[in-house]
Design a protein around this nucleic acid. Structure first.
Length: 184
DNA sequence: GCACCGATTTGCT
DNA sequence: GCAAATCGGTGCG
C-alpha cells in the first residue's frame, strides 16, 4: 500500500480532517489508525496561523503533507499534518497498531486505550521531537470508509461553534466521547 | 519588559 | 474538581 502523496493534502483542513479518519499513520514505524482529528484554517481565530507566520507555526505556511509539531503548554508535543497554506489537521487520537512495545514503554501504561488518546499522549507515544517540525516524517496510508461523527473542537475559546472535530463512530480509542448525534 | 493565556496531561484533594 | 508543570505568543505600558 502506497502512502498518500503530499499533493493529496493540498486541500482545506476540514476536508482533510474528515478524510483522515480511518487512515493509518506511522512515524518511524510506530503508530496506528487515526480515530480523531481537528481542523484549523487560515481565517480561523482558534488557529495558530490566524495572525500570520511566527517561528512556531511556520510549518503551517509551508508545503502540504508535512508535520507541524508544536510545544503545548510548554510541556507536550502535538502533531499536525499541514494542508493548504495556513491550514493543518491536529491528530488527537489513534487506535494503536504498530510498535506497541515502544509505545507502552514510552507512555508507561499497558492500556491500549490510553496510549494515544489525546494530542499530548500521541507526542509521547510516537516520541516526537521539536526537530520533527516541518519535516517529512509522516507515513499515512489510506484506510477503509468509516462512519464519522463531528463536534466542537476541544480546549479552545474562539470559534467554539465550528464542528471541526472529527471522530470514528463507535471507536473506543478517543480522547473524549462525542456527545452529539452528528453522524455523516 | 512583564503579565497572562493557551489546540494538555497528570496526580492529588 | 483543581493545581502544577513550563514556554511561545500576544497585548499593554
Amino acid at each position: 500500500m502506497e502512502r498518500l502523496p503530499h499533493a493529496w493534502f493540498d486541500r482545506p483542513a476540514p476536508e482533510i480532517a474528515r478524510a483522515l479518519i480511518g487512515a493509518q499513520l506511522l512515524v518511524r514505524g510506530v503508530g496506528g489508525r487515526i480515530t480523531e482529528t481537528e481542523a484549523y484554517a487560515p481565517d480561523d481565530p482558534a488557529s495558530h496561523s490566524f495572525r500570520g507566520p511566527t517561528p512556531r507555526n511556520r510549518a503551517m505556511f509551508g508545503p502540504p503533507g508535512l508535520a507541524y509539531v508544536y510545544r503545548s503548554y510548554g510541556i507536550h508535543l502535538c502533531l499536525n499534518v499541514t494542508c493548504q497554506p495556513g491550514s493543518a489537521v491536529l491528530i488527537r487520537a489513534l487506535e494503536p497498531l504498530s510498535g506497541m512495545e515502544a509505545m507502552t514503554a514510552r507512555r508507561g501504561t499497558q492500556d491500549p486505550r490510553r496510549l494515544c488518546a489525546g494530542p499530548g499522549c500521541i507526542g509521547q507515544a510516537l516520541a516526537l521531537r521539536i526537530e520533527d517540525d516541518g519535516t517529512d516524517i509522516l507515513t499515512i496510508l489510506p484506510g477503509p470508509e468509516v462512519r464519522i461523527v463531528t463536534g466542537p473542537r476541544i480546549g479552545i475559546s474562539r470559534a467554539v461553534d465550528l464542528p471541526w472535530r472529527f471522530g470514528m463512530a463507535g471507536s473506543r480509542f478517543l480522547s473524549r466521547p462525542f456527545r452529539n448525534l452528528g453522524r455523516i
